[in-house]
């Protein structure tokens, strides 16, 4: 994901701002990192360039 996506996305639960912590960047994109809600503190992972912004209770459902 690109950093400017933060202008559009927010926490799926309380719709507050997300704070980026990038651990791996490549060609101007964040490949690995986290997005943390500035209000509720929920942490959303970014893996392989894709932020997982599912509500946390849906995040752990294992794919088939």
């Amino acid at each position: 994901m690109k950093e400017d996506l933060l202008d559009i996305v927010c926490c799926p639960l309380d719709k507050h701002d997300l704070e980026l912590d990038a651990t791996e960047r490549e060609d101007g994109e964040i490949v690995t990192g986290t997005l943390t809600c500035t209000e509720c503190g929920e942490v959303y992972p970014i893996e392989d360039g894709i932020p997982n912004l599912l509500p946390p209770d849906m995040r752990d459902e294992a794919p088939a």
Binding site: M1, D7, V9, P12, K15, I50, N52, L53, L54
Partner: peptide
């Protein structure tokens, strides 16, 4: 979608999300 956008030269954001709790600003 990410792979296809790269192959075809499109630039848009992607996220995994639930339609009933959109992580998108008002």
């Amino acid at each position: 979608a990410r792979e296809r956008s790269r192959e075809r030269g499109f630039d848009y954001g992607l996220a995994q999300a639930d339609a009933s709790s959109l992580p998108v600003r008002d």
